[in-house]
Every structure is written in C-alpha cells, then in structure tokens.
Design a protein around this nucleic acid. Sequence first.
DNA 1: GTGATTGCAAACTTTTTGCATCCGA
DNA 2: TCGGATGCAAAAAGTTTGCAATCAC
Lengths: 164, 164
Amino acid sequence: MNENIFKQMLKEKKLKVTRQRLLVLELMAAHPGEHLTAEEIYALAQERYPEIGLATIYRTLQVLVDLQLLDKLSLDDGFARYELSQLPGEAQEKRHHHHHAICSGCGTVFSFEEDLLDTLEQSLRERLGFVVTDHEVKLFGYCRSCIEKQKDRHSDRQIMEVID
Amino acid sequence: MNENIFKQMLKEKKLKVTRQRLLVLELMAAHPGEHLTAEEIYALAQERYPEIGLATIYRTLQVLVDLQLLDKLSLDDGFARYELSQLPGEAQEKRHHHHHAICSGCGTVFSFEEDLLDTLEQSLRERLGFVVTDHEVKLFGYCRSCIEKQKDRHSDRQIMEVID
DNA sequence: GTGATTGCAAACTTTTTGCATCCGA
DNA sequence: TCGGATGCAAAAAGTTTGCAATCAC
C-alpha cells in the first residue's frame, strides 16, 4: 500500500494526514490476512506511539473502512474485527470479500477465496429485483486438528467408561 | 410447534417448565421468519406477562438456542437477533440455515433457502480437512424498491443541478 | 489562524451476573 | 423440600461522544 495514495485519498475527502492515521494503516498493512480487534490494534499502536488513545483507534478505523482500505467483519465473538481490504480503490464493483471458516473447537479462522455465489446472486436479482453489492459467508465447523483431538478424547472417554 | 415436545426436551435436560419459557417460545412461534431482538421479544412478553425481566428473556433465549429451537443471528446492527429454527429436533445434521439478503437502503431483510455451498464445503473438507457443520450467508445490496427510489433521486438531482 | 483531530473521561448500549426470593417437580 | 429459575439492580464489555487542548494545513 502506497502511503502517497493514502494521503491523496485523505485530501480528496478533506481529511488531515495525521501520525495516528498513518500508523494505523501501516500496522494493518503489516498484518495482512489477520482479523484484528480494535483492542489488538490499539496495543500494536501503543508500541510505537504510547500516547495514542483508544477512541482515536476507533475513529481512525472508521475512516479507513469508509475509504474502503479496511474491511470490518465479525466472527461472532463480540468483537468487531478489521483486516486490510484486498482490492483497494476503484475496483469496488468487483470487491467481493473472501470468506471465513471458523473452527468451533479452537477458534482458528481460515480465509479463502471462491466466488460460488454468482448463481445465487443472479437468481435473487431475477426473482426479487435485489441487486447484491457485497456478501459475507461464514462457515462454522471443525478444523482437522480439532477433529483429531476430538477423536482422541473419544477414545479416552471410552477407556474411562470401561475403567469406571 | 408442539408444546409437549418442548416440555419433553426441557425435562430431558433437567430444566424446568416455567411460564416464562413457554411464553417466549410461543411468542417466537407466533412470529416466524422475523428476526427479533431481545428487546423486541421482551416488549412482546411484557404484553402478556408484565413482571417478566429482561435477564430472563436473555437466559430463556439461550436455552432455546441450546435446544436448537431458535437460531441466533446478527444483521450487523449491534443487536443479536433470534428466529424460530426451521428444522427442530433430530434433523440436526441437515440443519443448514436459510440465508439473508439485507437491503442497505431500507434495512429490509429477505430470507431465502438455497444450498449452493455444498461444492464449497466439499472443497474445504478436501483441501483443509475442515468439516462444516453450519454456515451463515449474508448478502448486502439494494432491494427493488430502494433501487427505484434511488433512480428517482438521481433524476431529481439532475433537475436540481440544472435549476441551480 | 482556523477548523479538524486527538486524548481523556464519561456516557452509552447490549448483554451478563450476583443474589435474595420464588416456584416447579 | 430443594435446587433450579426469576426479577432486580449492578456490573461487564465494547464502542461512542463531549470537550478542551493540540495539530495539520
């Protein structure tokens, strides 16, 4: 992400280029593919700028979401999360988020691209006149390692039951 | 929804059949397809049982979600929402929620069934060993009537610009 | 200089929890 | 009777807001 493009975007919206805004974007760019909470971003920011306030983090994240530089998402754990947007700027029409598979066992989030919703979106447009601009897909389940742990635990339990 | 089945489910989990639990389930059953917040359910419950407490609503909703009688969902507006589950009881394996199309213009939520994710889920299982147990699909966009309103507004704006 | 931005604290909102009382089995 | 359930109020937890001081332009 080019810093100058960011400065340009801010100027176009008559927003000021501040140290805080540059820092937050830089941090997000340094953590691509992660789904950071405001608190996590706050902690990272404090390492480089201890005086920064949590309210500034929230306000800055909102600015970056408005500029479509960040995506705001939820993993249903009570925190809003943010990640670097994949297609910055003009390519907005095609801006379809990647999807998330959330392991119910360990909470690990797997991200993946795949546009399988075109048929669905077309059908919606035809049947309801609803035009889709964005979609969010969350899959819940169990990752390989949790499935294996689960198997182990089942073996243990069977053994325990026999012993008991 | 058969009340006796519910009582049976409660007994199996050693939970008590209370007036509050019966009331909340009855209210939810009377509003199928709606996506009610805890506050909305609280208001409905108070009409029939003014002494009921909001904490009871939350605790009861949790019980009903655990029993898979309700689905908890989020429309990204800061409220948890609840709706009657489509397939109660045993058919849990096939229990795939319907999806939601949320209009960014007016907030209307359109629900629809369609299982187009089988391919995606199969691919995840093969590639990652991730086994999907549930999914949530949200589509954002504009409904027919908001699109028409938008067109009108555009016409207005053009006229205004000419006049100005 | 001037208006946007920041940091701090307080407020707000939704949800959860502690506890005395109540009620279902 | 007795342990779970309830209602109330207080607490939590994430986020937003008011305001004086500060900073960008």
